[in-house]
Design a binder for these strands. Structure first.
Lengths: 207, 207
DNA sequence: GTCAATATAGTACGTTTGTACTAAAAAATG
DNA sequence: CATTTTTTAGTACAAACGTACTATATTGAC
Protein backbone atom coordinates (compact mmCIF):
# COMPACT_ATOMS: atom_id res chain seq x y z
CA UNK A 1 0.00 0.00 0.00
CA UNK A 2 0.90 3.62 -0.64
CA UNK A 3 3.05 5.04 2.17
CA UNK A 4 0.88 8.09 2.77
CA UNK A 5 -2.28 6.05 2.75
CA UNK A 6 -0.68 3.70 5.25
CA UNK A 7 0.32 6.55 7.51
CA UNK A 8 -3.16 8.00 7.41
CA UNK A 9 -4.68 4.71 8.52
CA UNK A 10 -2.22 4.30 11.39
CA UNK A 11 -2.74 7.83 12.67
CA UNK A 12 -6.50 7.60 12.24
CA UNK A 13 -6.53 4.41 14.26
CA UNK A 14 -4.57 6.08 17.05
CA UNK A 15 -6.88 9.06 17.14
CA UNK A 16 -10.07 7.00 16.93
CA UNK A 17 -8.91 4.72 19.73
CA UNK A 18 -7.90 7.61 21.97
CA UNK A 19 -10.68 10.10 21.36
CA UNK A 20 -13.60 8.21 19.93
CA UNK A 21 -14.65 8.38 16.33
CA UNK A 22 -16.95 11.39 16.67
CA UNK A 23 -14.32 13.52 18.37
CA UNK A 24 -11.86 13.18 15.51
CA UNK A 25 -12.17 15.52 12.54
CA UNK A 26 -10.50 15.19 9.18
CA UNK A 27 -8.37 18.15 10.16
CA UNK A 28 -7.16 16.27 13.22
CA UNK A 29 -6.21 13.29 11.10
CA UNK A 30 -4.42 15.45 8.56
CA UNK A 31 -2.47 17.24 11.31
CA UNK A 32 -1.46 14.06 13.06
CA UNK A 33 -0.40 12.56 9.75
CA UNK A 34 1.61 15.65 8.84
CA UNK A 35 -0.27 16.22 5.61
CA UNK A 36 -2.86 18.67 4.35
CA UNK A 37 -6.58 18.11 4.40
CA UNK A 38 -6.54 18.29 0.63
CA UNK A 39 -4.09 15.45 0.44
CA UNK A 40 -6.07 13.45 2.94
CA UNK A 41 -9.10 13.88 0.74
CA UNK A 42 -7.10 12.75 -2.24
CA UNK A 43 -6.39 9.39 -0.61
CA UNK A 44 -9.77 8.95 1.06
CA UNK A 45 -12.54 10.67 -0.82
CA UNK A 46 -15.03 10.23 2.04
CA UNK A 47 -14.43 10.18 5.76
CA UNK A 48 -16.33 6.92 5.90
CA UNK A 49 -13.77 5.32 3.58
CA UNK A 50 -11.17 5.55 6.34
CA UNK A 51 -13.43 3.76 8.78
CA UNK A 52 -14.28 1.09 6.24
CA UNK A 53 -10.62 0.53 5.45
CA UNK A 54 -9.85 0.08 9.14
CA UNK A 55 -12.77 -2.28 9.58
CA UNK A 56 -11.63 -4.55 6.80
CA UNK A 57 -8.09 -4.43 8.13
CA UNK A 58 -9.45 -5.68 11.43
CA UNK A 59 -11.51 -8.44 9.85
CA UNK A 60 -8.53 -9.61 7.83
CA UNK A 61 -6.32 -9.78 10.90
CA UNK A 62 -8.87 -11.78 12.83
CA UNK A 63 -9.51 -14.17 9.96
CA UNK A 64 -5.82 -15.02 9.86
CA UNK A 65 -5.70 -16.52 13.34
CA UNK A 66 -8.27 -19.28 13.12
CA UNK A 67 -6.89 -22.68 13.96
CA UNK A 68 -7.55 -25.45 16.41
CA UNK A 69 -4.88 -27.75 17.76
CA UNK A 70 -6.60 -31.12 17.79
CA UNK A 71 -4.32 -32.52 20.47
CA UNK A 72 -5.27 -29.92 23.06
CA UNK A 73 -8.82 -29.00 22.27
CA UNK A 74 -9.79 -27.21 25.46
CA UNK A 75 -6.70 -25.05 25.58
CA UNK A 76 -7.09 -24.12 21.90
CA UNK A 77 -10.73 -23.28 22.44
CA UNK A 78 -9.88 -20.96 25.30
CA UNK A 79 -6.89 -19.46 23.51
CA UNK A 80 -8.76 -18.44 20.41
CA UNK A 81 -11.11 -16.05 22.13
CA UNK A 82 -8.17 -14.30 23.76
CA UNK A 83 -6.25 -14.15 20.48
CA UNK A 84 -9.22 -12.53 18.82
CA UNK A 85 -9.67 -10.17 21.70
CA UNK A 86 -6.07 -9.04 21.58
CA UNK A 87 -6.57 -7.92 18.00
CA UNK A 88 -9.85 -6.27 18.90
CA UNK A 89 -7.94 -4.26 21.48
CA UNK A 90 -5.83 -2.73 18.71
CA UNK A 91 -9.02 -1.54 17.03
CA UNK A 92 -11.09 -0.88 20.10
CA UNK A 93 -12.50 2.37 18.75
CA UNK A 94 -14.58 0.19 16.53
CA UNK A 95 -16.24 -1.66 19.39
CA UNK A 96 -16.67 1.51 21.43
CA UNK A 97 -18.58 3.10 18.56
CA UNK A 98 -20.18 -0.06 17.25
CA UNK A 99 -23.70 1.37 17.25
CA UNK A 100 -22.74 4.68 15.68
CA UNK A 101 -20.78 2.96 12.94
CA UNK A 102 -23.34 0.34 12.01
CA UNK A 103 -26.09 2.93 12.12
CA UNK A 104 -24.34 5.01 9.50
CA UNK A 105 -22.60 2.37 7.43
CA UNK A 106 -24.88 -0.32 6.05
CA UNK A 107 -22.01 -2.05 4.28
CA UNK A 108 -20.15 -2.69 7.52
CA UNK A 109 -23.37 -3.62 9.27
CA UNK A 110 -24.28 -6.22 6.67
CA UNK A 111 -20.77 -7.62 6.62
CA UNK A 112 -20.59 -7.92 10.38
CA UNK A 113 -24.02 -9.48 10.55
CA UNK A 114 -23.01 -12.26 8.19
CA UNK A 115 -19.69 -12.68 9.98
CA UNK A 116 -21.51 -13.13 13.24
CA UNK A 117 -23.77 -15.81 11.81
CA UNK A 118 -20.80 -17.75 10.47
CA UNK A 119 -19.07 -17.47 13.84
CA UNK A 120 -22.07 -18.90 15.60
CA UNK A 121 -22.21 -21.91 13.31
CA UNK A 122 -18.50 -22.52 13.84
CA UNK A 123 -18.91 -22.18 17.59
CA UNK A 124 -21.67 -24.78 17.71
CA UNK A 125 -19.58 -27.13 15.57
CA UNK A 126 -16.62 -26.80 17.91
CA UNK A 127 -18.84 -27.40 20.92
CA UNK A 128 -20.14 -30.57 19.27
CA UNK A 129 -16.59 -31.78 18.86
CA UNK A 130 -15.86 -30.92 22.48
CA UNK A 131 -18.91 -32.89 23.57
CA UNK A 132 -17.92 -35.88 21.45
CA UNK A 133 -14.45 -35.75 23.00
CA UNK A 134 -15.95 -35.83 26.46
CA UNK A 135 -14.88 -32.30 27.38
CA UNK A 136 -18.23 -30.50 27.34
CA UNK A 137 -21.39 -31.93 28.87
CA UNK A 138 -24.56 -32.41 26.85
CA UNK A 139 -27.17 -29.64 26.81
CA UNK A 140 -29.40 -29.64 29.88
CA UNK A 141 -31.60 -26.90 28.49
CA UNK A 142 -32.83 -26.24 24.98
CA UNK A 143 -30.38 -24.17 22.92
CA UNK A 144 -28.13 -23.87 25.93
CA UNK A 145 -24.98 -23.54 23.84
CA UNK A 146 -26.62 -21.15 21.45
CA UNK A 147 -27.39 -19.04 24.47
CA UNK A 148 -23.80 -19.38 25.69
CA UNK A 149 -22.55 -18.19 22.32
CA UNK A 150 -24.78 -15.12 22.47
CA UNK A 151 -23.49 -14.22 25.90
CA UNK A 152 -19.89 -14.62 24.85
CA UNK A 153 -20.60 -12.55 21.75
CA UNK A 154 -22.07 -9.68 23.76
CA UNK A 155 -19.21 -9.74 26.22
CA UNK A 156 -16.61 -9.88 23.45
CA UNK A 157 -18.17 -6.97 21.59
CA UNK A 158 -18.88 -4.78 24.59
CA UNK A 159 -16.38 -5.60 27.30
CA UNK A 160 -14.29 -2.57 26.38
CA UNK A 161 -17.38 -0.40 26.48
CA UNK A 162 -18.32 -1.87 29.82
CA UNK A 163 -14.96 -0.86 31.23
CA UNK A 164 -14.95 2.61 29.72
CA UNK A 165 -18.32 3.68 31.06
CA UNK A 166 -16.69 3.60 34.47
CA UNK A 167 -12.95 3.97 33.96
CA UNK A 168 -11.17 6.81 32.21
CA UNK A 169 -8.77 4.80 30.14
CA UNK A 170 -8.56 1.39 28.58
CA UNK A 171 -5.49 -0.68 29.37
CA UNK A 172 -4.18 -4.03 28.23
CA UNK A 173 -5.26 -5.37 31.59
CA UNK A 174 -8.74 -5.47 30.13
CA UNK A 175 -7.69 -8.39 27.96
CA UNK A 176 -6.82 -10.53 31.00
CA UNK A 177 -10.04 -9.58 32.73
CA UNK A 178 -11.88 -10.61 29.61
CA UNK A 179 -10.04 -13.91 29.53
CA UNK A 180 -11.06 -14.62 33.10
CA UNK A 181 -14.68 -13.73 32.42
CA UNK A 182 -14.92 -15.98 29.39
CA UNK A 183 -13.09 -18.94 30.84
CA UNK A 184 -15.20 -18.85 34.00
CA UNK A 185 -18.37 -18.66 31.96
CA UNK A 186 -17.37 -21.86 30.19
CA UNK A 187 -16.30 -23.75 33.30
CA UNK A 188 -19.79 -24.93 34.31
CA UNK A 189 -20.21 -26.70 30.98
CA UNK A 190 -17.09 -28.82 31.35
CA UNK A 191 -17.11 -32.50 32.22
CA UNK A 192 -15.19 -33.65 35.27
CA UNK A 193 -12.35 -34.74 33.04
CA UNK A 194 -12.20 -31.31 31.41
CA UNK A 195 -12.44 -29.58 34.78
CA UNK A 196 -9.19 -31.30 35.71
CA UNK A 197 -7.59 -29.93 32.56
CA UNK A 198 -9.01 -26.52 33.37
CA UNK A 199 -7.43 -26.67 36.82
CA UNK A 200 -4.08 -27.41 35.20
CA UNK A 201 -4.44 -24.48 32.80
CA UNK A 202 -5.66 -21.98 35.43
CA UNK A 203 -4.29 -23.19 38.78
CA UNK A 204 -4.65 -19.71 40.28
CA UNK A 205 -8.43 -19.77 39.80
CA UNK A 206 -8.98 -22.69 42.18
CA UNK A 207 -10.52 -22.07 45.58
CA UNK B 1 -43.49 19.20 36.96
CA UNK B 2 -44.26 21.96 34.48
CA UNK B 3 -46.39 20.68 31.58
CA UNK B 4 -44.10 21.97 28.85
CA UNK B 5 -41.03 20.61 30.55
CA UNK B 6 -42.77 17.27 30.86
CA UNK B 7 -43.69 17.27 27.19
CA UNK B 8 -40.14 18.10 26.19
CA UNK B 9 -38.79 15.16 28.15
CA UNK B 10 -41.31 12.73 26.66
CA UNK B 11 -40.66 13.86 23.10
CA UNK B 12 -36.90 13.92 23.62
CA UNK B 13 -37.04 10.37 24.91
CA UNK B 14 -38.98 9.26 21.83
CA UNK B 15 -36.55 10.92 19.48
CA UNK B 16 -33.46 9.71 21.30
CA UNK B 17 -34.76 6.15 21.37
CA UNK B 18 -35.68 6.18 17.69
CA UNK B 19 -32.79 8.08 16.15
CA UNK B 20 -29.92 7.94 18.60
CA UNK B 21 -28.79 10.83 20.68
CA UNK B 22 -26.38 12.32 18.15
CA UNK B 23 -28.95 12.39 15.36
CA UNK B 24 -31.36 14.54 17.34
CA UNK B 25 -30.89 18.31 17.31
CA UNK B 26 -32.52 20.83 19.60
CA UNK B 27 -34.56 21.95 16.61
CA UNK B 28 -35.88 18.41 16.20
CA UNK B 29 -36.92 18.30 19.82
CA UNK B 30 -38.59 21.71 19.61
CA UNK B 31 -40.51 20.70 16.48
CA UNK B 32 -41.67 17.40 17.91
CA UNK B 33 -42.75 19.15 21.10
CA UNK B 34 -44.60 21.83 19.16
CA UNK B 35 -42.64 24.67 20.71
CA UNK B 36 -39.93 27.06 19.60
CA UNK B 37 -36.23 26.53 20.12
CA UNK B 38 -36.23 29.64 22.30
CA UNK B 39 -38.80 28.12 24.58
CA UNK B 40 -36.94 24.84 24.69
CA UNK B 41 -33.85 26.73 25.77
CA UNK B 42 -35.87 28.47 28.45
CA UNK B 43 -36.73 25.14 30.08
CA UNK B 44 -33.38 23.44 29.50
CA UNK B 45 -30.50 25.84 29.36
CA UNK B 46 -28.11 23.24 28.00
CA UNK B 47 -28.75 20.30 25.73
CA UNK B 48 -27.00 18.12 28.28
CA UNK B 49 -29.59 19.07 30.90
CA UNK B 50 -32.22 17.13 28.97
CA UNK B 51 -30.08 14.02 28.93
CA UNK B 52 -29.30 14.36 32.62
CA UNK B 53 -32.96 14.78 33.47
CA UNK B 54 -33.81 11.63 31.54
CA UNK B 55 -30.99 9.72 33.20
CA UNK B 56 -32.17 10.58 36.69
CA UNK B 57 -35.74 9.72 35.70
CA UNK B 58 -34.50 6.31 34.69
CA UNK B 59 -32.52 5.78 37.88
CA UNK B 60 -35.49 6.78 39.98
CA UNK B 61 -37.78 4.34 38.19
CA UNK B 62 -35.34 1.49 38.63
CA UNK B 63 -34.74 2.27 42.30
CA UNK B 64 -38.46 1.98 42.95
CA UNK B 65 -38.71 -1.70 41.99
CA UNK B 66 -36.26 -3.32 44.37
CA UNK B 67 -37.81 -6.00 46.50
CA UNK B 68 -37.32 -9.66 47.19
CA UNK B 69 -40.11 -12.03 48.11
CA UNK B 70 -38.51 -14.20 50.77
CA UNK B 71 -40.92 -17.08 50.19
CA UNK B 72 -39.91 -17.55 46.57
CA UNK B 73 -36.30 -16.51 46.41
CA UNK B 74 -35.32 -17.97 43.06
CA UNK B 75 -38.31 -16.62 41.22
CA UNK B 76 -37.80 -13.16 42.74
CA UNK B 77 -34.16 -13.20 41.83
CA UNK B 78 -34.96 -14.02 38.22
CA UNK B 79 -37.84 -11.56 38.07
CA UNK B 80 -35.88 -8.57 39.23
CA UNK B 81 -33.46 -8.56 36.34
CA UNK B 82 -36.35 -8.65 33.90
CA UNK B 83 -38.20 -5.89 35.75
CA UNK B 84 -35.14 -3.71 35.55
CA UNK B 85 -34.64 -4.55 31.94
CA UNK B 86 -38.19 -3.61 31.05
CA UNK B 87 -37.57 -0.12 32.36
CA UNK B 88 -34.25 0.04 30.58
CA UNK B 89 -36.12 -0.68 27.37
CA UNK B 90 -38.11 2.52 27.81
CA UNK B 91 -34.84 4.44 27.97
CA UNK B 92 -32.80 2.34 25.62
CA UNK B 93 -31.25 5.35 23.90
CA UNK B 94 -29.21 5.69 27.02
CA UNK B 95 -27.68 2.22 26.77
CA UNK B 96 -27.16 2.55 23.03
CA UNK B 97 -25.12 5.70 23.56
CA UNK B 98 -23.63 4.75 26.89
CA UNK B 99 -20.06 5.48 25.84
CA UNK B 100 -20.85 8.78 24.17
CA UNK B 101 -22.83 9.97 27.18
CA UNK B 102 -20.34 8.99 29.87
CA UNK B 103 -17.51 10.39 27.79
CA UNK B 104 -19.12 13.80 27.74
CA UNK B 105 -20.93 13.88 31.05
CA UNK B 106 -18.75 13.23 34.07
CA UNK B 107 -21.64 13.69 36.47
CA UNK B 108 -23.59 10.81 34.96
CA UNK B 109 -20.44 8.73 34.67
CA UNK B 110 -19.60 9.15 38.33
CA UNK B 111 -23.16 8.46 39.40
CA UNK B 112 -23.41 5.32 37.33
CA UNK B 113 -20.06 4.10 38.53
CA UNK B 114 -21.14 4.30 42.16
CA UNK B 115 -24.50 2.76 41.32
CA UNK B 116 -22.76 -0.16 39.70
CA UNK B 117 -20.59 -0.77 42.73
CA UNK B 118 -23.61 -0.78 45.03
CA UNK B 119 -25.40 -3.20 42.73
CA UNK B 120 -22.49 -5.58 42.82
CA UNK B 121 -22.44 -5.63 46.62
CA UNK B 122 -26.18 -6.27 46.67
CA UNK B 123 -25.82 -9.04 44.12
CA UNK B 124 -23.18 -10.85 46.15
CA UNK B 125 -25.31 -10.51 49.28
CA UNK B 126 -28.31 -12.05 47.52
CA UNK B 127 -26.18 -14.87 46.19
CA UNK B 128 -24.97 -15.56 49.73
CA UNK B 129 -28.57 -15.84 50.86
CA UNK B 130 -29.33 -18.15 47.96
CA UNK B 131 -26.38 -20.34 48.90
CA UNK B 132 -27.46 -20.46 52.53
CA UNK B 133 -30.95 -21.46 51.40
CA UNK B 134 -29.52 -24.31 49.36
CA UNK B 135 -30.47 -22.81 45.99
CA UNK B 136 -27.04 -21.82 44.67
CA UNK B 137 -23.97 -24.03 44.93
CA UNK B 138 -20.78 -22.86 46.62
CA UNK B 139 -18.06 -21.24 44.50
CA UNK B 140 -15.90 -23.74 42.66
CA UNK B 141 -13.55 -21.05 41.38
CA UNK B 142 -12.22 -17.94 43.06
CA UNK B 143 -14.55 -14.94 42.66
CA UNK B 144 -16.86 -17.02 40.53
CA UNK B 145 -19.95 -15.04 41.48
CA UNK B 146 -18.15 -11.76 41.09
CA UNK B 147 -17.35 -12.89 37.59
CA UNK B 148 -20.98 -13.91 37.04
CA UNK B 149 -22.11 -10.47 38.14
CA UNK B 150 -19.76 -8.80 35.69
CA UNK B 151 -21.08 -10.90 32.83
CA UNK B 152 -24.67 -10.16 33.73
CA UNK B 153 -23.81 -6.49 34.00
CA UNK B 154 -22.27 -6.37 30.53
CA UNK B 155 -25.19 -8.22 29.00
CA UNK B 156 -27.71 -6.01 30.77
CA UNK B 157 -26.01 -2.85 29.65
CA UNK B 158 -25.27 -3.89 26.09
CA UNK B 159 -27.84 -6.43 25.02
CA UNK B 160 -29.80 -3.77 23.15
CA UNK B 161 -26.62 -2.64 21.45
CA UNK B 162 -25.82 -6.21 20.56
CA UNK B 163 -29.15 -6.58 18.83
CA UNK B 164 -28.98 -3.26 17.04
CA UNK B 165 -25.60 -3.77 15.43
CA UNK B 166 -27.30 -6.45 13.37
CA UNK B 167 -31.02 -5.69 13.32
CA UNK B 168 -32.64 -2.48 12.12
CA UNK B 169 -35.09 -1.99 14.93
CA UNK B 170 -35.41 -2.85 18.57
CA UNK B 171 -38.58 -4.61 19.66
CA UNK B 172 -40.00 -5.70 22.98
CA UNK B 173 -39.04 -9.22 21.98
CA UNK B 174 -35.54 -8.26 23.02
CA UNK B 175 -36.67 -8.32 26.64
CA UNK B 176 -37.69 -11.97 26.44
CA UNK B 177 -34.47 -12.89 24.69
CA UNK B 178 -32.60 -11.14 27.46
CA UNK B 179 -34.57 -13.01 30.09
CA UNK B 180 -33.66 -16.32 28.45
CA UNK B 181 -30.00 -15.38 28.26
CA UNK B 182 -29.79 -14.37 31.89
CA UNK B 183 -31.76 -17.27 33.30
CA UNK B 184 -29.72 -19.78 31.34
CA UNK B 185 -26.51 -18.19 32.50
CA UNK B 186 -27.61 -18.73 36.09
CA UNK B 187 -28.80 -22.30 35.65
CA UNK B 188 -25.38 -23.95 36.02
CA UNK B 189 -24.96 -22.44 39.48
CA UNK B 190 -28.18 -23.90 40.84
CA UNK B 191 -28.32 -26.85 43.23
CA UNK B 192 -30.34 -29.90 42.21
CA UNK B 193 -33.19 -28.68 44.39
CA UNK B 194 -33.17 -25.29 42.68
CA UNK B 195 -32.93 -26.91 39.25
CA UNK B 196 -36.26 -28.56 39.98
CA UNK B 197 -37.75 -25.16 40.80
CA UNK B 198 -36.21 -23.77 37.63
CA UNK B 199 -37.85 -26.52 35.60
CA UNK B 200 -41.18 -25.56 37.10
CA UNK B 201 -40.67 -21.88 36.28
CA UNK B 202 -39.40 -22.47 32.72
CA UNK B 203 -40.88 -25.80 31.59
CA UNK B 204 -40.41 -24.84 27.94
CA UNK B 205 -36.64 -24.66 28.35
CA UNK B 206 -36.25 -28.35 29.22
CA UNK B 207 -34.74 -30.69 26.65
C1' DG C 1 13.81 16.33 -21.75
C1' DT C 2 8.92 16.44 -22.53
C1' DC C 3 4.55 15.25 -21.28
C1' DA C 4 1.21 12.91 -18.59
C1' DA C 5 -0.12 11.05 -14.24
C1' DT C 6 0.12 11.20 -9.45
C1' DA C 7 0.46 13.55 -5.19
C1' DT C 8 0.15 17.55 -2.20
C1' DA C 9 -1.40 22.05 -0.39
C1' DG C 10 -4.55 25.73 0.32
C1' DT C 11 -8.84 27.95 0.11
C1' DA C 12 -13.57 28.42 0.07
C1' DC C 13 -18.41 26.99 0.43
C1' DG C 14 -22.62 25.29 2.28
C1' DT C 15 -24.71 23.13 6.33
C1' DT C 16 -25.60 22.16 10.77
C1' DT C 17 -25.42 22.89 15.51
C1' DG C 18 -25.71 24.77 20.21
C1' DT C 19 -26.81 28.69 22.29
C1' DA C 20 -27.06 33.78 23.28
C1' DC C 21 -30.06 37.62 22.89
C1' DT C 22 -34.29 40.39 22.28
C1' DA C 23 -38.96 41.18 22.29
C1' DA C 24 -43.60 39.98 22.68
C1' DA C 25 -47.35 37.40 24.90
C1' DA C 26 -49.50 35.17 28.82
C1' DA C 27 -50.10 34.41 33.57
C1' DA C 28 -49.77 35.66 38.20
C1' DT C 29 -49.82 38.99 41.89
C1' DG C 30 -51.40 42.61 44.74
C1' DC D 1 -56.44 47.39 36.86
C1' DA D 2 -51.46 47.91 37.03
C1' DT D 3 -47.09 45.73 37.24
C1' DT D 4 -44.18 41.93 37.80
C1' DT D 5 -42.93 37.30 36.66
C1' DT D 6 -43.10 33.53 33.78
C1' DT D 7 -43.38 31.64 29.37
C1' DT D 8 -42.97 31.70 24.43
C1' DA D 9 -41.16 32.90 19.75
C1' DG D 10 -37.90 34.57 16.52
C1' DT D 11 -33.49 35.96 15.06
C1' DA D 12 -28.74 35.97 14.95
C1' DC D 13 -24.12 34.35 15.63
C1' DA D 14 -19.91 31.90 16.02
C1' DA D 15 -17.81 27.54 15.55
C1' DA D 16 -17.00 23.18 13.42
C1' DC D 17 -17.28 20.06 9.92
C1' DG D 18 -17.17 17.47 5.50
C1' DT D 19 -15.91 18.12 1.16
C1' DA D 20 -15.55 20.40 -3.48
C1' DC D 21 -12.38 22.95 -6.15
C1' DT D 22 -8.09 24.97 -7.90
C1' DA D 23 -3.35 25.39 -8.28
C1' DT D 24 1.25 23.85 -7.57
C1' DA D 25 4.76 20.30 -7.00
C1' DT D 26 6.61 15.74 -7.65
C1' DT D 27 7.21 11.51 -9.98
C1' DG D 28 7.24 8.30 -13.80
C1' DA D 29 7.18 6.86 -18.75
C1' DC D 30 9.06 7.05 -23.17
Amino acid sequence: MNATKHKILIKSLDLFNDCGISNVSLRDIANKSGISVGNLQYHFKKREDIIEALYFQLVEKIDSIYFIKTDDLLQSFLNISVDIFTILYEYHFFLLDFITITRRNKKIKKHYSELSKRREIEFIKVVDVLIKNGLFREELLKNEYHSLFKRIEVISNFWFSSILIQADVLSKESIEQYSLLISQSIYPYLTNEAKKQYAAIFPSQLV
